[in-house]
Simulated scan of single mutants.
Amino acid sequence: MAVMTTLAVRNKGLRPAPMVERNYAVHRHGWIMIISGLLESLFYLFSLGVGVGALVKQIELPGGRMVDYAVFVAPAMLANAAMNAAVAETTFNVFGKLKWMKLYDGVLATPMRPRDVAAGEITWALIRGAIYSAAFLVVMAALGLTDTWWAVLAFPGSVLIGLTFSGIGMLATTYFRNWPDFDWMMAFIFVMFLFSGSFAPIENYPSWLQWAVYASPLYHGIELLRAFSLGDLSPMLLVHAAYLAVVGAVCMGFAARRLSKLLYK
């Protein structure tokens, strides 16, 4: 009877709640870590958006519209905050639990499955990213960097970015062998941050680089949030959102399989 009950539980849908509850219990007194992650993107906003913006003043968008440089940069910093929160949770933290703490070995002694673990860690990453995004949007509004109510849609847009990079981070972690592997990942994240239209329209890039940028999930995230922030809505928003959703779903699917292979080997 006990075996049948366990099998019945295992055949149910995803059960991310136990992992989320565990992570909350561990981090509920670690608010300093959450604040420090948010401050990084805010520092970028103040130093580049506000500081450099005092020199650049305004920037011309592809359609000919002129906007303040800080207004142009702020959505990119919001996208960066969502990305960093997702990547930090699904890479460094998951790798430590997987390789060194062996936490998931104990978790699998319960009715939970590897895909429940993956769903729980990704859900927790989304919660952390949502906190970053909400706080960042409040700062943007306080600084007058949004002038339309469409900017509230930047919050679900940032959650979508977090979902995408949670899948990417989780999948990458399943291939890492040791801590030095993270150096390559962080270098890739930093290059993507610099060359995804964060600080200038990609129309200013060489044509060969523009094609590489189009493949960047961060580029599509930045364009999505920038359009909401400026109230510049168009059918291309559906393309950006669909690209993020597809990349995130594919990566999460492969990450769940990889995690099962690692934990059941």
Rank of each mutant, 00 (worst) to 15 (best):
M1H: 09
M1G: 11
A2G: 09
A2I: 03
T5R: 15
L7H: 02
A8W: 10
R10E: 14
G13R: 06
G13I: 03
P18A: 08
P18H: 01
M19W: 01
E21A: 12
R22N: 00
R22P: 00
N23S: 14
V26I: 15
H29I: 02
I34T: 10
G37I: 09
S41Y: 06
L45W: 09
F46E: 02
F46I: 15
S47L: 14
V50R: 13
A54Q: 11
V56T: 10
V56F: 04
K57A: 01
Q58I: 08
I59R: 04
R65P: 00
D68P: 02
D68C: 04
Y69I: 00
Y69H: 03
F72G: 00
V73H: 03
L78Y: 05
L78V: 03
A79Y: 03
N80Y: 13
A82N: 13
A82K: 09
A82F: 05
A86I: 01
V87M: 14
V87R: 04
V87N: 03
E89N: 12
V94T: 13
V94A: 08
V94R: 07
F95T: 01
L98N: 02
L98W: 06
W100D: 12
K102V: 03
L103N: 10
V107P: 05
L108R: 05
L108H: 04
P111Q: 12
R115V: 07
D116A: 06
V117Y: 01
A118F: 07
I122K: 00
A125D: 06
I127E: 00
I131Y: 04
I131V: 14
S133T: 10
S133R: 05
A134L: 12
F136I: 07
F136N: 03
M140C: 07
G144E: 11
L145P: 01
D147I: 00
W150R: 08
W150T: 13
A151M: 09
A151L: 07
A151E: 10
P156K: 09
G157W: 02
G157L: 00
G157D: 04
I161N: 06
L163V: 03
T164G: 02
G167Q: 05
G167D: 02
I168H: 08
G169C: 09
L171I: 04
A172N: 07
T173M: 10
T173Y: 06
F176T: 12
R177A: 06
F182M: 15
D183H: 09
W184V: 09
M186W: 14
M186N: 15
A187W: 11
F188H: 02
F188I: 13
F190Y: 09
M192P: 05
F195K: 00
S198K: 05
N204I: 15
N204C: 10
L209R: 08
W211M: 07
W211I: 12
V213P: 12
Y214S: 02
A215T: 10
S216A: 05
P217R: 05
Y219Q: 05
G221T: 09
G221E: 12
I222G: 14
I222D: 15
L224W: 02
R226P: 01
F228M: 14
G231C: 07
D232S: 12
D232L: 13
D232K: 06
S234G: 03
S234H: 05
P235D: 12
L237N: 01
L237E: 03
V239M: 13
H240S: 04
Y243E: 11
L244C: 08
V247A: 07
C251V: 01
F254H: 03
F254P: 07
A255E: 06
K261Y: 13
K261P: 00
L262N: 11
L263T: 14
L263I: 13
L263Q: 11
Y264N: 13
